[in-house]
Amino acid sequence: MSILNSGVTQQLSKKDSKEAADIYWTRYLPYIVLVVVFAAVSIFVPYFLTISNLLSVLLQTASLAILAIGQAAVLILGGIDLSMPGVMALGSIFGAMYMRAGGNPVLGAVIMLLVPAALGLINGISVSYFGMIPFVVTLAMQAITIGAATMITNQISIPVPENFCNAMLTKIGGIPLPIIIVLILTLFLQFAVTKTYYGRWLYSTGTNMRTSRVSGVPTKKVVLAAYSFAGLMGGLAAIIMTSRLYAASPQMGKDAVAMDIIASAAVGGVSTMGGVGTAVNAVIGAIIITLISNVMNMANVSYYLTLVIKGIIIITFVAIDANSRKKSTK
C-alpha cells in the first residue's frame, strides 16, 4: 500500500477497479486541481516560477498548512474545529505578552504552543466525554478566544522580539525553517496515520464509531487526542505566523481564517464526512488555497468577493465528496 493513499480508499482490488474508478476518481482530484492552478498561475503571473518566489509562496502557506493538518485530524473523525483561528491568536498573544514583559523567547514559544493545545483539550473533553456537538462547542470556543484576544490587546498588535522572529525564519540550505518544519511534520504524520495503529484507530473511529467501540478501540481517547492535536497545531501555526508578522495580533484569529482552513482540507481531499484524508491532502489543499488567494489579491478582487468565491469552493468540493460517498454506499 502506498503511503500517499488515504485511509479508507487504500488497497483496491482488481475486481473492484471498474467500480472503483467510478467512485474514487475524486481521490486524484486534489492533485489535478493543484496542477491546473499551478499551471494557470505560472502562465499569467510573471516571475512566478522563480525559486525565490516559490519559496515565498511556500513560506506563506506554512501556517495554513499546519492549521489544515490539525483540522484534517478532526474532520477524519467526522467532527469539525471552528475554533482554530481564535485559539491560535490567543496563544500568540499570551506568548507575545510574556516576551514583552521580558520573558525568555523559548518559553514564549512554549506558551504559544501550549495555550492552544490546552484549549483544544477542552474542546476534546467536551465532545468526547460530555457528548457535545463539535460544531457548537468549537464555535463557542472561537467566540471566547477571539473575544478574549481582542479585549486583552485592545485591538493593538503586540510586537515580539526580533531575535525570536529571526530564529524562526532562519534559512537552512536556503530554505526557511517553517517550510522545513511543515515538510518534516507532514512526512511524520503521513507515516503515523497510514502505518501505526493510532492512525488506524483514527480512520476506524471516523468511519464507524460504534463498530470501533464494540471492537475495543478507545474511541473517546481517540476523539480527545484529535481535538487536542488540532489545538497543538494551532499553537505551532501561532509561532510561525507571529514570527512572520513580527507581532501578535487578534487579527490572526478572525472568523474568515476558519474558512481558509476548512477550504484547504476540503479541496485537498479530506472528507468532511469522516474517515478519509491524510496530512498530505491537507498540505496540498493549503497550497491550492494560498495560490488562489494570491491570485485574487493580485487581481484586486475585493475581500468580500474573495469570501464568496471561497465559500463556493468549499460547497463544490464537499458536494463532490458527498456524491462519491453516495455511490460507494449504494
Binding site: 476506524s204 468511519t207 464507524n208 460504534r210 463498530t211
Partner: peptide
C-alpha cells in the same frame, strides 16, 4: 451498524 467498517477492506 456495529459490526463492520463498511467502506474499509476485509483486512482492515
Amino acid at each position: 451498524e456495529e459490526g463492520l467498517l463498511l467502506p474499509m477492506s476485509v483486512c482492515n
